[in-house]
């Protein structure tokens, strides 16, 4: 029995639990599998077909993604002779790891967070900007024309959406008067959800994240009919699976931030007090944040069924010509809201 207790202790040891299980690697993997499966199911429903079904029709084909994962894992990883090996191998792995890094500062409940810092919003926003640079590295190291074009497109897009996202986050922290997620959620609980306080910021953030995580119609950097698979054309096997997962992992992280900044964090379930510490401080608030993030993510993958893809110049034009201005407007709106709060 002592061993079992020790094991349970080890699993629940906060650093381990946080990084490996929830909301770390394992939870993100489950999230990705669920999201890719539901993306295919959603597209299938809209497109007069079933989507994945053959493996276990009663579970609506849910194990299909596990099967895919196993296939990716067992497939030979081909590293072409012409690539620059070190960056080629490092880029997707590092990108995936760094894509999950912002989770170290995003709280899932007032007490459930590994790193307490005053500038958590700042750190999270800063960390989300790094993975795209590694995608560019991957494309460069691949030594393939299509990868190169994909990287070039990605680098154009980064400049657009990162600035919009950072401006929107700035406008929200201006509104809440803090750079700490905890305080931001507190303000929302006291006042109103951020999406109601500043809807323009919410919409702008949503679109910018779609642009950043290459959702349709902004799936430009890996446009299949144009540049095969963008920066990841040369990847195969588990490396390709990992590369595919990066954008979903980033989407998850971005949407956690979205929930914390706009959707009141752990609002509905977080207030319930049952007396059980684990239930009160981890499961209920954590579940409410995660469920909201999943719902937002589902909305983002749904657009695949409605849109084609923009051309890069359209996306840039839309980004700089419209959404950038909307981001500036959202700062103005935040100022107005702050002013109104001061008055009343």
């Amino acid at each position: 029995m002592a061993i079992v207790e020790r094991l349970v202790d080890l699993i629940l040891w906060p650093p381990l639990f946080y990084y490996i299980i929830f909301p770390g690697l394992i939870f993100v993997m489950i999230f990705e599998i669920f999201l890719i499966w539901s993306e295919r199911k959603i597209a299938g429903r809209v497109q007069m077909r079933y989507g994945p079904l053959e493996i276990a029709p009663r579970l609506a084909g849910a194990p299909q993604l596990l099967a895919d994962l196993i296939r990716y894992a067992l497939q030979e990883v081909i590293i072409p002779r012409t690539v620059d090996k070190l960056p080629f191998v490092i880029a997707p792995i590092a990108a995936f790891v760094i894509a999950l890094m912002p989770l170290i500062v995003t709280p899932f409940s007032p007490t459930f967070l590994p790193v307490t810092t005053e500038g958590s919003i700042l750190i999270a926003a800063a960390l989300t900007t790094i993975p795209p640079l590694l995608l560019i590295l991957a494309g460069w190291a691949s030594n393939n024309k299509f990868s190169l074009v994909g990287s070039a497109r990605e680098s154009f897009l980064i400049a657009t959406y990162e600035i919009i996202i950072l401006l929107v986050i700035a406008s929200m922290s201006f509104l809440y008067g803090t750079l700490d997620f905890l305080k931001a959620v507190e303000v929302q609980q006291a006042l109103l959800w951020g999406i109601l306080l500043n809807p323009i910021a919410a919409i702008t953030y949503f679109v910018a994240v779609m642009m950043g995580t290459s959702r349709f119609p902004f799936e430009i950097a890996e446009a299949e009919s144009e540049i095969v698979m963008g920066a990841f054309t040369e990847y195969s096997g588990i490396m390709f699976g990992l590369a595919m997962g990066i954008s979903y992992a980033r989407m998850f992280v971005y949407n956690i931030i979205f929930v914390l900044l706009f959707l009141g964090g752990w609002s509905p379930l977080g207030g319930i007090v049952t007396g059980n510490y684990i239930l009160d401080s981890i499961i209920l608030p954590g579940a409410s944040v995660a469920i909201k993030a999943v719902l937002i993510s589902l909305l983002m993958v749904f657009t695949r069924a409605v849109y084609g893809r923009y051309r890069i110049d359209h996306a840039l034009k839309g980004g700089w010509g419209f959404w950038f201005i909307m981001a500036l407007v959202s700062i103005g709106l935040s100022a107005a809201v702050v002013y109104l709060m001061e008055v009343f």
């Binding site: 497109q47 077909r49 349709f216 799936e219 695949r304 069924a305 084609g308 893809r309």
Partner: peptide, 16 residues
Amino acid sequence: FAILLGHSTMYMWFFG
């Protein structure tokens, strides 16, 4: 044409 433009739904609809 639709799938070349990335519009998978119209691809399926046209073919369906």
